[in-house]
Design a protein around this nucleic acid. Structure first.
Ligand code: FES
Ligand code: FES
Lengths: 131, 131
DNA sequence: CCTAAATAGTACCAATTCAGTACAGTATTA
DNA sequence: TAATACTGTACTGAATTGGTACTATTTAGG
C-alpha cells in the first residue's frame, strides 16, 4: 500500500488538537483529548519538536504549543517531521538511501519530477485546513 | 519514510522498457534489458496484467506489451496496480482497512482532501514522461 | 500430436520496518 | 525540595516487503 505511517496520521490529530491550546498543553492532556495513548503522544512530540513544528516547555505547567500559525504548517511538514525527507523512491535526490540499479537504469532521475509534484500537493494542505 | 514500494519503482522501469516493444516482449527479455531479476519481473507482470496496464500473450513468441499508449498510462495507475488503491491513511474513503480512532477523531475525513491532491499530482505524470 | 516457450497462480521465507512501550535523566515551577 | 513534565534512548512483537520457488496452463510450430 502507498500510505503514510500511522504515526503521521496521529501527528496531524495532535497538531489539530494543539490549535485550540492557548498555553502549553502537556502530553497527558493531548492524549486525553485525542484518544491516542499517552506513550505514543510522547514519542510523537519529540519528532515534532525536533522538526521545529512545536515549542516545548518543561516543568510544572509545561507542555507543548504550535511553533507557527496553523495555516503555516503543512501536511508536508508533518510527514517530514515524523518520517524524514519525502523521497518516493531511493532514486530521488534528497533520499537517504541509494538505488541499487542507478547505474544502468532507464528512468534515472525521472522520479524527481513525480516527487516534486507530490510534495507540492502536500504543501497545499495546512493544519488549519484539517480542523 | 514516505515512499512507494521498490516494486513500484521497478514496475515503472518495466513499463518504460515496454514502450520500445513493437511485438510481445517476454519477461526474460525485459529482465535482461532492465537488470531486474527475472523472477521479480515475472511477479510484477502479473500485477500489471491484472490492472489492465499490459496485455499478455502466452506460448512461443509470447510476452507482454503495453495495453495503452505510453502517454495514457500514469504513475498513479502503476502504483495502484502494484500496491492497490491509493489511500494515504486508513481514514481515506477508498482504503481497504478501517481507522481505529474514527469514532472520536478530530480530523475525520480531512485526509480525503490530501489524498485527492496527491492522486491528482500522480495522474499528471505518464510513462511517456519517464522515458 | 508432441514439445518447447512462455505466461498464471499460489505459496513461502528472510529481512526490514512499524507501532507501541519502558525507563532513566533533566529542566522548571511552586 | 518535591512534584510535574519534557528528553533521550533503546527494546520488543507484529506486520509488511522483497525476493524466490514451484506447479499448472496456454500457445506456436514442426
Ligand atoms: S530504479 Fe533507481 S535509478 Fe532507476
Ligand atoms: S485518525 Fe483515522 S479517522 Fe482520524
Amino acid at each position: 500500500m502507498f500510505k503514510v505511517n500511522k504515526l503521521t496520521d496521529y501527528a496531524t490529530v495532535v497538531m489539530v488538537d494543539l490549535v485550540s491550546a492557548d498555553l502549553a498543553r502537556p502530553s497527558q492532556k493531548i492524549a486525553n483529548n485525542t484518544g491516542i495513548p499517552y506513550p505514543t503522544v510522547n514519542k510523537l512530540m519529540k519528532d515534532l519538536l525536533h522538526a521545529g513544528l512545536v515549542r516545548s516547555h518543561r516543568g510544572i505547567n509545561g507542555g507543548y504549543s504550535l511553533a507557527s500559525p496553523a495555516n503555516k504548517i503543512t501536511i508536508a511538514d508533518i510527514i517530514q517531521a515524523v518520517e524524514g525527507p519525502i523521497a518516493l523512491t531511493s532514486c530521488v535526490n534528497n533520499s537517504l538511501d541509494k538505488c541499487t540499479y542507478e547505474d544502468f537504469c532507464a528512468v534515472q532521475g525521472r522520479w524527481n519530477r513525480v516527487n516534486k509534484a507530490v510534495v507540492t500537493a502536500l504543501k497545499k494542505v495546512t493544519v488549519a485546513d484539517m480542523t
